[in-house]
Amino acid sequence: MNKVIETILNHRSLRQFEDKPLTDEQIKTIVSCAQAASTSSFIQAYSIIGVTDKDKKKKLSELAGNQEQVAKNGHFFIFCADLYRHALIGEQEQKNVIPSIESTEKFMVALIDAALAAQNAAIAAESMGLGICYIGGIRNQLEEVKKLLNTPERVIPLFGLAVGYPTNITGTKPRLPFEHIYHVNEYQPNKEEYLNQLKKYDSVISSYYEERTGGKRKDRWTEQMAIMLEKQSRMYMKEFVQKNKLDLR
């Protein structure tokens, strides 16, 4: 096993960081690694906003559900789906690109491009001994986030990435079984086998929480998911995306 694989397999979300900013060189390296990620048809349909202003970080923390790691970290990156530049390209090259830009396909491309770039950035940061935590909570109130970040139409902030020097290293969470995730040649939806795999995984997760919390918590994964999914959250997203001239047809 090489160091790259060790870094990937040792991933864990960390939420407590030293009050120590990343250097310009570290930031540039992380962003350069993000840019090295694969991108569909070389479209590069994303942008990254680095937030250093303490007041903005504090406001973003509040908008994300009062998550402390948004305000206190070494650097806070926000990954955005971005087709604004492509609209400008259409104007420059005198081509009608709007129907394509406003398609669900190109919206999906922008989401995927941003996610691939972010994961490269995360691995780069962790390989440098830094900790990371993805922040989906910035989508709680996207109108306010867009105003704060001054993003134009066709640009949507998707998630944040808090990066910094960790003060507390937690254990890695056990993932779903290999057999549950990986299918050979075709999807194999054997319901009985699926439920048995989930039951075994529930036992693993329950034991993980019980050990980590000294017996204060031992909830099951399926229990977590059912409770979370029963609550409808961010149901305004389709309207918001369409309002920002993405994913219209």
Rank of each mutant, 00 (worst) to 15 (best):
E186F: 10
G65E: 13
I27F: 02
N150R: 08
T213A: 09
S206C: 06
A36D: 07
I205Q: 12
Q242T: 10
R139I: 06
I123N: 07
V204C: 07
E223C: 02
E143Q: 05
I8G: 06
T172W: 02
F42D: 13
I49M: 04
P21V: 05
A45I: 05
R15W: 02
G160D: 01
L158I: 09
A114I: 04
T23G: 10
R217L: 09
K57N: 04
L14D: 02
M108A: 11
T213V: 09
A114G: 06
N73A: 04
V155F: 00
T104R: 13
G160W: 00
A115M: 12
N244M: 07
H75W: 00
A34E: 00
T172I: 15
D247H: 15
Q242E: 12
I138D: 05
A34K: 11
A125F: 12
C33P: 02
F107M: 03
Q92Y: 12
T7V: 15
N150I: 03
A117E: 00
G215C: 15
D247I: 00
Q141E: 14
S203D: 13
E126T: 13
K58P: 01
E18F: 07
K173D: 06
G137W: 07
E153D: 15
E186W: 07
K216E: 15
P99A: 14
Y165E: 14
R217G: 02
D24A: 08
E105W: 04
V155M: 02
G214S: 10
L83A: 11
E18V: 02
I181G: 07
F178D: 09
V31E: 07
Q224R: 08
T23C: 11
L14N: 09
M108Y: 12
P174A: 05
P152K: 08
K191W: 05
E143H: 05
A121G: 05
V204S: 03
S206N: 07
R220I: 05
N140M: 08
E18I: 04
L111Q: 04
I8T: 02
L198Y: 11
F42R: 14
K231P: 02
L63D: 10
I5N: 04
D247Y: 10
P99E: 07
D24E: 15
A162F: 01
S103R: 06
N168D: 13
S100W: 08
K57H: 04
D219L: 11
L246G: 01
Q232N: 13
L246A: 06
I205D: 08
A81R: 01
N96Y: 03
A34T: 06
K58Q: 13
Q94M: 10
R12S: 10
I123G: 01
P177T: 08
F17W: 07
Y201C: 10
I48F: 02
A114E: 03
S61V: 08
N66C: 12
I27H: 02
K173E: 09
E192S: 09
Q188R: 12
V145F: 03
V241T: 13
Q92R: 12
Q224L: 14
T29L: 13
A34I: 03
T7K: 13
C133I: 10
R212A: 12
G50E: 01
H75S: 01
E230V: 00
G65N: 08
T29V: 14
I30D: 00
M1V: 12
S103T: 13
R12L: 09
A117W: 03
H183E: 05
R234Y: 05
L111V: 12
F240A: 00
G129D: 08
E93A: 08
R12K: 15
L246Q: 06
A125D: 09
N196E: 14
G90E: 05
S207T: 15
S203I: 09
K243N: 15
